Simulated assay, not measured.
Amino acid sequence: MKKNKSTQVHTIFQKIAPSYDKMNTIISLGTHQSWRKQATALAKLRPNSNILDVCCGTGDWTVALAQQINHKGHVTGLDFSDSMLAVAKEKIAKYQLDEKASLLQGDAMQLPFDDNKFDIVTIGFGLRNVANALVTLQEMFRVLKPGGQLICLETSQPTAPVIRQGWELYFGHIVPLLGKTLVNEKKEYTYLTDSTHNFVNYKQLASMFWQVGLKHVYYHRIMFGAAAIHTGIKP
């Protein structure tokens, strides 16, 4: 099943890469960039930080992080979809960040890096799409330096009953219709909304952070619980 999910997700992201940024802005009502800014504000960034952005997709967070460091720092964006990475490559070139950012195609569950390599490891809107979220967190923990920080920005589920009902209606019915109407990709956007519904809640994700060995685990819910930022430190 895990292999099937990996194949399914890879196929989906290969297909939606050209429209992903447009649809992400529409679906999140333009808020996804502000969510990344909030997550970045929680990062213990130094000018020379060595950062890994896992499941970097079209590179928005990779670019934002690279803009916060100097030429002695570096951000590596990793994703398994070459189509998504092609979009990210264009952004890195557009913002002239070639010296501070690089891209690599790879598997989040088998990171191609030595232990204790990075000061900060991030993952934005990617953990719910990997075949095994716990294994991915273990790999992110492995490549962190002692004292390094792991940051996860992910969609989540509101808990207030009225807001939850509106959220269910929007993500369960409206988003797939937007995918069909705007980019003729209803099936793909049905999967993406289902992945949000089926992923662990914010408390369970915090427990997974503790489980892999992270300390000082902290979470911050945003937009009435529609998304959450989790952070932890490797001892």
Rank of each mutant, 00 (worst) to 15 (best):
D119G: 06
G172Q: 08
A226H: 05
K180M: 08
I222Q: 05
F209E: 05
L134Y: 08
L153H: 02
L192N: 02
P161E: 06
W167C: 00
G225R: 00
Y202S: 13
T122D: 03
F125E: 07
I222D: 09
Y218N: 12
Q138D: 07
R128A: 04
K234M: 08
Q204D: 14
M140L: 03
I123Y: 01
R128M: 03
L214R: 03
C152W: 07
T196C: 11
P158M: 04
L177Y: 13
F209D: 06
T159V: 07
Q138F: 02
A160N: 14
K180D: 08
Q157K: 12
T155P: 10
W167M: 02
Y218G: 11
M208V: 15
S195Y: 04
K187D: 12
V143Y: 00
G124I: 11
L144N: 14
A227G: 07
K215D: 10
Y202D: 08
N201S: 03
A226Q: 05
K180H: 13
E185T: 01
V217K: 07
Q211T: 14
R164I: 04
R128Y: 08
I233Q: 07
L182M: 13
R221M: 10
M140T: 14
L144C: 13
E168L: 03
R164C: 02
F224V: 07
A228W: 02
R164K: 14
P158D: 06
F125C: 09
Y219Q: 09
F171Y: 12
G232C: 10
A227F: 00
T155W: 05
F125A: 06
I151D: 01
L127D: 02
H173A: 12
I151F: 02
L153P: 11
H173S: 13
R142H: 10
L137G: 11
Y189H: 07
G172C: 08
V200S: 08
L134N: 06
L205M: 14
N201G: 04
N201Y: 03
V143C: 02
T155G: 09
K203C: 15
A228R: 00
E154N: 01
H216L: 15
Y170Q: 05
V143F: 00
